[in-house]
Amino acid sequence: MSAAMRRRAVLALPYAWLTLFFLVPFMIVLKISLAESVIGIPPYTALLATDGWQLHVSGESYRRLASDDLYALAYLNAIKFAGVSTVFCLLLGYPLAYGIVRAPRRWRSLLLLLVILPFWTSFLIRVYAWIGLLSGNGVINNTLLALGLVHQPLTLLNNAFAIYVGIVYSYLPFMVLPLYAQLEKLDPALLEAAADLGCRPWRAFCRVTLPLSLPGIAAGALLVFIPAVGEFVIPDLLGGPNTLMIGKVLWDEFFANHDWPMAASVAVAMLAVLILPMGFIRRLLQGETA
């Protein structure tokens, strides 16, 4: 086997994996999104009619997606929640990752372990725990009342604040880990060189550390932003019934309305919405490293 063939064989594995578990399911979703909703099993029409070899493509669900403002609003809302949460994750995660990298070597693995420790508990249970913390007679309100800092319980639950808390809390490790990996690679001699050339520590950070950690920032931002856009559990549990986020709309179309084609078209549109920022960040990074 030639080297080129071997390379192709090695590359074939991830491609096969992606084809099998991403492309094929996506094609099925795409197919369902182009069908019409009916009552039956499955609850949508077939794309290829069995009588003739005729293609029954329906744009009905996409038409509704475009005409009903509710969907556009839900998309925008989800992007806003995910975007703001990503910024907060970055603001919290960067100092955290930086602190871990700067900690004495023997502390580092312990600190990293603490960052991923929450994963040992089910995601659902951790989000429920926040209800106990944030609710009207929850831990936080009770403490504030007992200390006399407030005289009426604060509304911490069932609002946008609770959603932000939930998303930032849940996705923070996904920001910290890539940032840590990136900052760890940074050669300390580069900071010494910057100091030698006249940079105070803050300037050295801005001119050396920050630009060199951009790939980590981008990776962390994507890892937080993308799942956060489609997030359903957190807005459902912490955001209350009036939250409008696309993940929740999708859930409702699927489980409440049993409208599979509509749910599928929401999913396809969401993918299209997410590909844009990914492409943008990729371009940005290529410009940086080229």
Partner: peptide
């Protein structure tokens, strides 16, 4: 006197060039 105020410049053993 911190490094950034000393009138010396160093050429590092590893060069320490800024890769970006």
């Amino acid at each position: 006197v911190p490094p950034y105020r000393r009138p010396v410049n160093m050429m590092f053993q590893s060069y320490a060039l800024f890769p970006h």
